[in-house]
Amino acid sequence: MDEVVLHLTQKIELLQVWLREVVQKGKDFVDTASQEIITSENFILAEEYLKDIITRLINRGTLTACCFGFTVGSGVGLALGFCLQSTSKPIYMMRAVAATNFTGPDGVAVLEDVPVPSVKLPDQILVEVRYATFCQTDLRIASGYARVLRSILDPSAEPAVILGRSGSGTIVEVGGSVNGYDPGDKVIFWCPIWKKGCLSQYVLLSSWQVAPLPKGVSLEDGAWSAYPSVLSWKFLNDS
């Protein structure tokens, strides 16, 4: 048994010596080959050849063309990005008092998530409401009054009908064909029974529903007198 162990030990020692010699010879070969390649004339010629190719390729004309292409490409990319980006406006929410199920006063509720309307037609005016009225007509609408008329003349007023027949406020936006009104103007307005009312933070109106706030009249006083005032204003201006 001892002879076997001794024999194996000798073999292992010989193997270790042989591996050391192989590793050392490999390192010597790599060092010698690297030195020969670096100092050889062929490598120098190859290096000069590569430098010559790079110099020919990267000249002033090439650099100018690259810069021009980069600039044009960037401009085209930005233009496409602006064209393809969404142009839709963000939707904001407002509060409104509306008839939700036409069961009378019990069906009237304060809605917290009504989309703020936006001007889409040339004769429309968007107003930020300051004061609005609630009258007997609104109670009748809450019980189902004029539903058929609204379904014919203004289907967008359903299903939850915003109440409020007259009011006052400040213009936020006007359509392209609206004359005599600008954002920031104080106005009074009325809402017929077939349209959405004005018991909301914003109301979208046609220009014929609006009249300037009379001089010396407050927004509060103008709100309750808006219905006869707007009709009188339209009559005087159309006659």
Rank of each mutant, 00 (worst) to 15 (best):
C67T: 14
C67S: 10
C67K: 12
C67P: 00
F68T: 10
G69Y: 05
G69P: 03
F70R: 02
T71A: 14
T71G: 01
V72D: 10
V72H: 10
G73D: 03
G75Y: 02
G77M: 14
G77T: 08
G77I: 05
L78A: 13
L78C: 07
L80C: 12
L80V: 07
G81V: 09
G81S: 13
F82I: 14
F82T: 11
C83L: 14
C83R: 03
T87V: 11
T87H: 05
S88W: 10
S88P: 04
K89M: 11
K89I: 08
P90I: 12
P90H: 04
I91Y: 01
I91A: 11
Y92T: 11
M93H: 11
M93A: 03
M93G: 00
M94W: 05
M94C: 07
R95P: 04
R95D: 09
A96I: 10
A98H: 09
A98L: 11
T100I: 15
N101K: 15
F102Y: 15
T103S: 15
T103C: 04
G104K: 02
P105I: 06
P105D: 02
P105G: 00
D106K: 07
V108S: 04
V110G: 00
E112G: 06
D113A: 15
P115T: 01
P115C: 00
V116S: 05
V116G: 01
P117T: 00
S118D: 06
S118H: 10
V119L: 13
K120H: 08
L121P: 00
L121G: 08
L121V: 01
P122D: 04
E128L: 08
V129W: 02
V129F: 01
R130E: 05
Y131V: 07
Y131C: 10
